[in-house]
């Protein structure tokens, strides 16, 4: 099977006050049809920008390098019309804050059907019927009433369901979900995640799921790509990321996660501050904060290499694979999450 999505050496620079600043330095991703890839990282690590680059939705003036291919077709060579065609039928995007992402002045019915009616030539009454059906699928109680409501009459969770419904209506092959639950409260988060997971599985859609929550990522995805300062530093199978982190950054992320069973006075943090992609110097982007850093780490940038079962961008990955201690506690936690997700 050929990959649905391939991203190779993606670089993105954005104009900031007259100069170009790197926001994505080097991102490689592949996604098979029906697969879920989670992208994890701190704010500003380039997760959302990667999704926007795939969609061709970068801000004006952005410089893009590298290659993005969807279903074998190179997107950098695509005309704006072809890109639009892709967004209409093949790639759907779910945004972080549904209240900002859904235009407040149109009714839900108008919002859901506008693409069908205005771009795909579906008669309005048919489109409304389809919208009603898909609202039912996202478990909105009174779909017919909902079609006539305005966005401000719905809760954040309901609106995100509407957003998911809108994406399903265009029957895509790939969903890009950019922190779809960050703006929602915790109980709603769980519902929306479960819904998204179920619908995706039923339709065998591929998904790129962006989050800063490593455990959520492990629960929902097949593979995890950890991003730091505009680069993917580690790509591994979801369960591996929690149990056998090879990149020191992934390890540090895991350690800084509070454990509900243990009372701590101080929550462990990663020392130092996260750096932006444009601040990266000659060496490894993580070396100033890395407890394993050696001399070479500050001098030469590490290359991404296959280590064990994952792709890791670290000089010391190979030796860490040999000597890593796997704690039983982390194992059981990952199992618990896996069961929850199933």
């Amino acid at each position: 099977m050929s990959p649905l999505l391939e991203v190779e050496h993606l670089r993105v620079q954005l104009p900031v006050g007259g100069e170009l600043r790197s926001v994505i330095r080097d991102v490689d991703l592949t996604l098979e049809p029906g697969e879920v890839l989670a992208m994890v990282g701190e704010s500003g690590s380039g997760k959302s920008m990667t999704a926007r680059a795939i969609m061709g939705l970068l801000p004006p003036g952005a410089e893009v390098g590298g290659r993005i291919a969807f279903d074998g077709a190179d997107l950098s060579a695509a005309s704006s019309r072809q890109l639009r065609e892709l967004r209409l039928r093949r790639i759907g995007m779910i945004f972080q804050d549904p209240r900002a992402a859904i235009n407040p002045v149109h009714r839900i019915g108008d919002f859901l059907t506008e693409v069908l009616v205005r771009e795909l030539g579906v008669p309005r009454s048919d489109a409304m019927k389809r919208a009603e059906g898909v609202l039912q699928e996202v478990r909105i109680r009174d779909p017919e009433h909902c079609l006539h409501q305005y966005p401000h009459e719905l809760s954040g969770g309901m609106l995100q369901r509407v957003m998911i419904a809108a994406v399903l209506l265009s029957e895509p092959d790939l969903i890009l979900a950019d922190e779809p639950t960050t703006a929602l409260d915790v109980t709603t988060q769980a519902e929306v995640i479960a819904l998204l997971s179920d619908l995706r599985r039923a339709r065998e859609l591929a998904m790129v799921f962006i989050t800063h929550d490593l455990e959520l990522a492990a629960a929902i995805s097949d593979r995890i790509a950890v991003m730091y300062a505009g680069s993917v530093v580690e790509t591994v199978a979801a369960a591996e990321a929690l149990t056998r982190p090879l990149h020191p950054y992934t390890e540090a992320l895991l350690e800084s996660r509070p454990d509900i069973a243990v009372r701590l006075d101080v929550i462990p943090q990663i020392s130092g501050r996260p750096i932006a992609a444009y601040e990266v110097d000659a060496g490894c982007p993580f070396h100033p904060r890395c407890r394993y850093a050696e001399e070479q780490c500050s001098l030469t940038p590490p290359k991404t290499a296959l280590v064990g079962t994952g792709l890791v961008m670290c000089h010391r990955a190979q030796e860490r694979l040999g000597g890593l201690h796997i704690s039983g506690e982390q194992n059981s936690l990952a199992d618990g999450l896996g069961a929850q997700a199933g």
Binding site: M55, R84, M93, A100, N103, P104, E114, A166, S170
Partner: peptide, 19 residues
């Protein structure tokens, strides 16, 4: 952000601007 949504859904530019 809702303009980004409209573009992401494949709406043509004139419609994005107008609606």
């Amino acid at each position: 952000e809702h303009v980004a949504t409209a573009r992401a859904r494949g709406l043509r530019n004139s419609l994005v601007i107008r609606r």
